[in-house]
Nucleic acid binder design. Structure first.
Lengths: 194, 194
DNA sequence: CCTCTCGATGAGTATTCAGTCACCGAGTTA
DNA sequence: TAACTCGGTGACTGAATACTCATCGAGAGG
C-alpha cells in the first residue's frame, strides 16, 4: 500500500470510529453526517466518498458490532454452560455495550427493512439458544412445563423494555447491572418450581 | 355561540380528529402538520391558529386518549375483579386501541419530557393496580413468593415488546389478540405453583 | 521534472418541515 | 349599511440536513 492508500484507509477507519461514538451517544437517527465529519476532522463531503450514504455507514458499523457480539455469544454457547450461566453472561455482554443496545432497543422499529432484518436475524439466533436450553431443561424435568416460546419472549421483552426506557429507571450507570439479579431471579422462578 | 364560534370549534375538532387518525396510522413523529391540514381540508396556517405548535397538538390528543383509557381502567379496578380477569380486560383494552399503543410503545423514548412523564404517570397507575393485586395474592398464599416489582416489569415489558415490534410477529391483525393466551398463561405460571 | 491520478475540500443544491404574516372576506355590531 | 372583527388563507421564511461537484494539490508514475 502506498501513502495514498494508507491515508484513505485511515480516513475510512476514522469515520467509522467517530460515527460509532456519536451513534452510541445520540442514536443513529439523531446523529448528522456533518457532526460525524466534524468529529473525524474531515470535510463533510469526504464522508460520502467513503460511504454511499448515511444508511450504508450505519449498516457497516452495525454489521461489525453484531458480528463481534454474535461470535462472543457463539463462544458462550459452545462451552455448554447451563441456562443461568448463559443468561448471566449474556447480560454481562449487554452491560458492556449497553449504550449501543439502548440505541438499538429504541430505534429498531424505525430502521429500514434491511437493517431491521439483519439485527433481528442475529437476535433470533441468540433467542434460539435460550429456546433450546429451556427445552432441554423441560425434557430433563429440571424445568416446569412452560410455553417455551412465550417464556423466551418474556425474557427478551423485559430486557428490551429496561433498555429502551433506561433513563426512567436510573439517572446514571447501567440498567442491566441494576436489574440483572431481579431479571435472573424472576426468570428462574418462571422455570423452576419451588 | 354565534356562527363564527361554532365554525371555530368545528374546525378545531376536525383538526383533532384528523390528526389522531394520521398519528395512529403513521406515528406522531412521521406525521407532518401539512398532512393534517390537508386531511382536515383547511389551510396549513389555520392549524397554528388553533394550536401553538405541533407538540401541543400531540399533547392534547394524547391527554384526551389517556384520560379516557385511564377511566376505563379505573372502572375495571373498582369492580374488584381477580388478577386474571384484570389482565384479560386490560389486554382487551389494548387490543381495541392497538394502533395507538403500538405508536406509543415505539415512540415513547423520543417524546419530550412533558409528554413522556404524562404517559408514564398513567402507566404507573395501571402498574400499581397489578402490583397490589399480586401482593394480595402472595399474602393470601394464592401466589408464589415472587419479586412483585420484577414480575410486573416482566408483564409490561413483554406487552410493550410485542407492541413495538408488531410487524415482525404478524402481517395483519392484532398482536395482542394473537398472543393474549400465551401472555396470560405464562404470567399465571410465574405466579402460581403447579 | 512533468504529467496525471485521485482523495479531500467546502460551498452549493435540493428537500423537507414547522411556523409566520399580510391580506381577505364572511359575519358581527352599532 | 357602514365599519369593524376575527377565523381562515397560502405563499413565504428559516432551519435542518443529506448529498453533489467543480476545484485543489499532494503524491504516483514515467
Amino acid at each position: 500500500m502506498n501513502k495514498r492508500q494508507i491515508q484513505k484507509k485511515k480516513t475510512r477507519e476514522l469515520i467509522l470510529q467517530m460515527a460509532k461514538a456519536e451513534f452510541v451517544k445520540k442514536g443513529f437517527l439523531n446523529t448528522t453526517t456533518s457532526e460525524i465529519a466534524e468529529k473525524a476532522g474531515i470535510a463533510h463531503g469526504t464522508l460520502f466518498l467513503h460511504f454511499k450514504n448515511k444508511d450504508s455507514l450505519i449498516v457497516e458499523i452495525l454489521d461489525r458490532e453484531l458480528e463481534e457480539i454474535s461470535s462472543i455469544i457463539q463462544n458462550l454457547i459452545s462451552r455448554a454452560i447451563d441456562l443461568e450461566q448463559l443468561l448471566l453472561q449474556y447480560l454481562d455482554l449487554l452491560q458492556e455495550e449497553e449504550e449501543l443496545f439502548v440505541v438499538l432497543a429504541r430505534e429498531l422499529p424505525f430502521y429500514n427493512e434491511e437493517l431491521r432484518r439483519k439485527i433481528l436475524f442475529r437476535d433470533s439466533i441468540i433467542r434460539s439458544h435460550f429456546h433450546k436450553a429451556i427445552e432441554l431443561g423441560i425434557k430433563e424435568k429440571r424445568y416446569r412445563d412452560v410455553d417455551v416460546t412465550s417464556a423466551v419472549m418474556f425474557l427478551f421483552g423485559t430486557i428490551n423494555y429496561y433498555l429502551s426506557l433506561k433513563p426512567i429507571f436510573l439517572k446514571e450507570g447501567s440498567v442491566i447491572k441494576k436489574f440483572k439479579p431481579s431479571i435472573v431471579k424472576t426468570f428462574k422462578q418462571l422455570l423452576i418450581s419451588d
